[in-house]
Design a protein around this nucleic acid. Structure first.
Length: 186
DNA sequence: GAAAAGATCGGG
DNA sequence: CCGATCTTTTCT
């Protein structure tokens, strides 16, 4: 089988909105207990920096957000509502505090349970807080460009669950593949 | 110390 | 619409 191409650091070290859009269609891979789990990214959200009131980084550098303020290409994973994990990829440059949340995957190969939504995505991929801070250019967790795929349209919509963020709640910073049935919400 | 709220999900 | 469930941050 043809080997997919792992995304380089430079892919993540760019404008967060561009990264969020470009991540659509890419393959997220997690090697866990010798088993490779893989899903195609179909929905993302951009959290663009300290001035974005929906972003955890808007609180400044805290123990939790230090990963977001670190170098790009690392995983930022946290527990939300006491029961669900959410996975992000750090973008831009060290000190910027931006990341892209992965919200939904289309399964590539066997995956247990739904991958439709950030909490379920992490459960199906075996992602939890032990992954927090991991470099996504290693061999355990990474994102790769698939060898080939059909062209698709990108839809931009407001982010989910950020009503507290004032004006930022309305910004079109959620992106998904038009017509894909694994997108968590229209 | 204590309290409140949260980038969610599933059940009623 | 509401409860589960627990971490992080903020307030006293």
């Amino acid at each position: 089988m043809k080997r997919n191409e792992k995304l380089p650091r430079a892919f993540y070290a760019r404008d967060t909105i561009e990264v969020a859009r470009d991540l659509l269609g890419k393959h997220l891979v997690h090697v866990c207990d010798g088993v490779e789990r893989c899903g195609r990214i179909v929905e993302t959200e951009a959290y663009i920096g300290a001035h974005d009131l929906a972003s955890h980084s808007s609180k400044g550098i805290t123990p939790r957000t230090s990963i977001m303020y670190g170098p790009p290409g690392h995983a930022y994973v946290y527990l939300i509502y006491g029961m669900h994990h959410c996975m992000n990829v750090v973008t831009e440059t060290e000190g910027h505090g931006a990341a892209v949340l992965l919200r939904a995957l289309e399964p590539v190969g066997p995956l247990e349970g739904s991958t439709k939504g950030p909490g379920l995505l992490c459960r199906a991929m075996g992602i939890d807080k032990s992954i927090n801070g991991m470099d996504m250019l290693g061999d355990t967790l990474y994102i790769a460009e698939p060898s080939s795929q059909a062209r698709f349209n990108i839809v931009a919509r407001p982010r989910i669950g950020v009503a507290y963020a004032g004006e930022w709640a309305a910004a079109d910073l959620r992106f998904y593949i038009e017509g894909n049935s694994y997108v968590s919400r229209k």
